[in-house]
Write a protein that binds this DNA or RNA. Structure first.
Length: 500
DNA sequence: ATGTCC
């Protein structure tokens, strides 16, 4: 009768198309849900993703259900692609459910150029971008010295604007206008600040990149117009985070929380889920430090974007102000944020699964999104004014061989996913496996036959990021679109890509 | 992801 999916240790119950549930049992406080097609489930069930998702339901104060997005895979304690809405008054906050790379995210900058304008300049452009934008492991940033780190942590893109690295419209087209007011730089250790010292304005390594792309398809003309996207247009995608600084902050607080909140930790099935109880000093400090890292990462992407404008001005021999180089949007996909959501509660007002709720109330939650993107629909006050009538842009990077998507926050995201959707294609194989399967130079040559120009600090990075190591981004986006959590607006394909 | 192990 009931549709099920056999995922080894787990038998998933089909709630409806693309919605699968691990029923609540034992110490689980709520059920867990995976949003995926059967094809994507086959890939998810190979690793520890489902165990980690179930473990998440043990966190005190978790509301409704723990969620895994269609691109989910195993992470540190909590799946990449995981979403958990946890009570901000009676629950907890968990650094492992935010991720090591705090405010890892993506921004897209538009241009007025078309693909024809760029044809023949790809080699020059990729070389110039590679030269101008610091990348790779370790040091070297666009801005070094002074108190750039402290300013970035405290004031975010406001500081970049003051320093001439931004224009006003960059702020109005960034989440929170590029500044988290809850940031507390004093909660960031000296060691973390020192690691960030020479990384302000740097891409980093791994899956981080800067890509010049062309828009190949616009699926929704009206929203495409609202976003200013059209076919053959050149856009720039920047994917990076808070570098060693955010990594250090995550590590610092995991260790502190493990020491201080041993009692809570002993109730959890995995040490990697270590969490600070809401209202505790460490919860406040971690939240303040994390918000400061969010500001740092926004400044990081802002500086890289502004430097890209200067490179385009140089290569195309025109002032960048005349090339329509405006920020479309910047999305954070590793973050925990206080947001108000409608949730079900029992007779005592405690969090419960929807099926057991006797009332629905608005609560302030720490919405943990790790490898998941906020996807708020039209009307939410957090959506910038420019997009409030249509819904926020959601940027989903795919791979160098498949391209990327722009979606629009879907009307069903508030009901289904605490206003969230996927963040990328999701890895299919480990970095180690990728280096056995591919050689960087060959991948580069293959991509060149598709008119994609790639340049990296290390050939190993190209191998690790070969198109074949990623899931089918079309399938991930199809599921998001059909669920109504993030709807297809446009698709892009790479022209030039630089990476660490 | 990450001064790819303090």
């Amino acid at each position: 009768m009931t549709d099920t999916f056999d995922a080894g240790e787990f038998t998933l119950r089909k709630v409806r198309e693309h919605v699968w549930e691990i029923p609540q049992e034992g110490e689980m406080r709520v059920p867990a849900r995976i949003l995926a097609s059967e094809a994507l489930l086959e890939e998810i069930s190979d690793d520890k993703t489902l165990q980690q998702l179930r473990n998440t339901t043990h966190l005190p104060g978790i509301h409704r259900h723990a969620l895994c997005m269609p691109d989910g895979h195993q992470g540190y304690g909590f799946p990449v692609g995981g979403v958990a809405g946890i009570d901000a008054e009676n629950g907890c906050i968990s650094p492992g459910a935010v991720g090591y790379d705090i405010n890892c995210g993506v921004r897209m900058m538009k241009t007025d150029l078309t693909y024809d304008d760029v044809r023949g300049h790809e080699e020059e452009l990729v070389e110039a971008l590679f030269e101008a934008v610091p990348s790779g492991l370790g040091g070297g940033g666009i801005v070094e010295g002074g108190n750039a780190v402290e300013e970035a942590l405290e004031r975010g893109v406001d500081w970049a604007l003051e320093e001439g690295w931004a224009v006003e419209s960059d702020l109005t087209h960034c989440e929170d206008e590029g500044r988290r007011p809850d940031a507390d730089p004093s909660a960031v250790s000296q060691k973390a600040k020192d690691r960030g010292r020479n990384q302000v304005g740097s891409l980093g390594s791994g899956n981080h990149f800067l890509e010049v792309q062309r828009v190949t398809d616009v699926f929704d003309g009206a929203i495409g117009d609202a976003y200013g996207l059209s076919e053959d247009q050149i856009v720039v995608l920047i994917h990076c985070g808070s570098r060693g600084l955010g990594h250090q902050v995550c590590n610092d607080y995991l260790r502190e929380i493990e020491k201080t909140h041993e009692g809570l930790l002993s109730q959890l099935p995995d040490r990697e889920l270590a969490a600070a109880p809401a209202g505790s000093q460490l919860a406040e400090e971690y939240y303040g430090a994390m918000c400061a890292c969010i500001n740092f990462a926004w400044v990081n992407r802002q500086l890289i974007m502004h430097r890209t404008r200067e490179v385009f001005a140089d290569v195309f021999d025109r002032p960048w102000e005349e090339m329509g180089m405006d920020l479309l949007y910047d999305v954070a996909h590793n973050i925990a944020k206080k947001e108000v959501h409608e949730v079900g509660v029992d007779a005592e007002g405690r969090p419960v699964a929807d099926a057991d709720a006797v009332d629905r109330v608005e609560r302030e939650l720490y919405v943990h999104r790790k490898g998941a993107t906020r996807a708020f629909p039209a009307g939410r006050p957090e959506v910038p004014e420019a997009y409030r009538d249509v819904g926020q842009p959601v940027i989903i990077p795919g791979s160098m061989g498949a391209g990327s998507y722009v979606l629009c926050g879907g009307t069903d995201s508030m009901d289904l996913t605490f206003g969230s959707t996927a963040h990328g294609a999701g890895r299919l194989m480990s970095r180690t496996k990728a280096k056995q399967e591919y050689w960087g130079g060959d991948v580069q040559d293959d991509l060149r036959t598709q008119e994609v120009y790639v340049k990296a600090q290390s050939g190993a990075t190209i191998a690790e990021e070969a198109p074949g190591v990623y899931k089918d981004v079309d399938e991930v986006v199809r599921v998001s679109d059909e669920l109504g959590i993030g709807s297809k607006v446009a698709r892009t394909f790479p022209v030039c890509n630089i990476k660490g």
